[in-house]
Computed example of a mutant assay.
Amino acid sequence: MLKIGITGGIGTGKTIVSRLFAVLGVPVYDADTRAKWVMHHNQALREELLKAFGPATFSDAGELDRAYLAGMVFNNPQRLELLNSLVHPHVGTDFDVWAASHANKPYVLKEAALLFESESWRQLDEVITVSSPLELRIKRLLKRDTHRTEADIKAIMDRQLSEEEKMKRAQHIIYNDDKQLIIPQVLALHEQFSKAGA
């Protein structure tokens, strides 16, 4: 079974591309969603988060206070690095367990915005980067995330690996530029991975 990563900067459309693979019956692991689940349910990680960020990290009811945690790490690179260094290894283990449960499939996908930054590409066989022009990404995000300004979006982009670097490191690129159709690109890769992982 192949383990394929899918990444791309904010607003490139990696979630749309992942959904197309899911429609084709490919199991998709959404690293961002699973990271939230792991932070809630993994006891060892909960203890690490409490030790690193204090008792306000979780409410009295035991719920993760995401707003508090975001406030702690936003604009603080050291704290953000600490948070990622605690969460990413647990998510990596969670992915391994999840992937093993789909061993009967030719391949699985792991969707993660920070695939290269978190070093989680190392547990994968190949990586797809979804690419989109900057102006188009900003336009999409302003429409989708109405609470964000263009400055907010650019600040997020500045914290992510550049588009050029992600494209350079990937084995495959899907262009989501409103010029090339994405479905044929997905179908071509699906056929390739299905044969290689069979």
Rank of each mutant, 00 (worst) to 15 (best):
Met1Phe: 10
Ile4Gln: 02
Gly5Phe: 10
Gly5Glu: 06
Ile6Leu: 13
Gly9Leu: 04
Gly9Tyr: 00
Ile10Ala: 08
Ile10Asp: 00
Gly11Asn: 05
Val17Tyr: 05
Ser18His: 04
Ser18Cys: 13
Arg19Met: 11
Phe21Cys: 03
Leu24Lys: 08
Leu24Arg: 10
Pro27Arg: 04
Val28Lys: 04
Val28Ala: 04
Asp32Thr: 03
Ala35Pro: 04
Trp37Glu: 14
Val38Ser: 05
Glu48Met: 01
Leu49Cys: 08
Leu50Ala: 09
Ala52Ile: 00
Ala56Ser: 14
Ala56Gly: 08
Thr57Lys: 06
Ser59Cys: 02
Ser59Gln: 01
Asp60Ile: 09
Asp60Ala: 13
Asp60Cys: 06
Ala61Asp: 14
Ala70Pro: 03
Met72Cys: 09
Met72His: 01
Pro77His: 05
Pro77Trp: 00
Arg79Gly: 08
Leu82Ile: 00
Ser85Lys: 12
Val91Arg: 10
Val91Ser: 10
Asp94Lys: 12
Phe95Cys: 03
Trp98Gln: 09
Ala100Ser: 12
Ala100Asp: 10
Pro106Lys: 12
Tyr107Val: 03
Leu109Ser: 04
Ala112Phe: 00
Leu115Val: 08
Phe116Ile: 13
Phe116Glu: 15
Glu117Asn: 00
Ser118Trp: 01
Ser120Trp: 14
Gln123Pro: 09
Leu124Gln: 14
Glu126Ile: 10
Glu126Gln: 15
Thr129Cys: 14
Pro133Ile: 13
Leu136Ala: 07
Leu136Trp: 05
Arg137Pro: 12
Ile138Glu: 06
Ile138Ala: 11
Lys139Ile: 09
Leu141Arg: 04
Leu142Cys: 06
Leu142Pro: 05
Lys143Ala: 15
Arg144Asp: 14
Arg148Phe: 11
Thr149Val: 01
Ala151Gln: 15
Lys154Val: 08
Ala155Met: 04
Glu163Arg: 06
Glu163Tyr: 02
Glu165Ser: 03
Lys166Leu: 05
Met167Cys: 14
Arg169Trp: 03
Gln171Glu: 13
Tyr175Trp: 14
Asn176His: 01
Asp177Ser: 11
Lys179Ser: 06
Val186Glu: 04
Leu187Ala: 14
Leu189Phe: 06
Glu191Thr: 13
Gln192Val: 09
Ala196Val: 07
Gly197Ala: 05
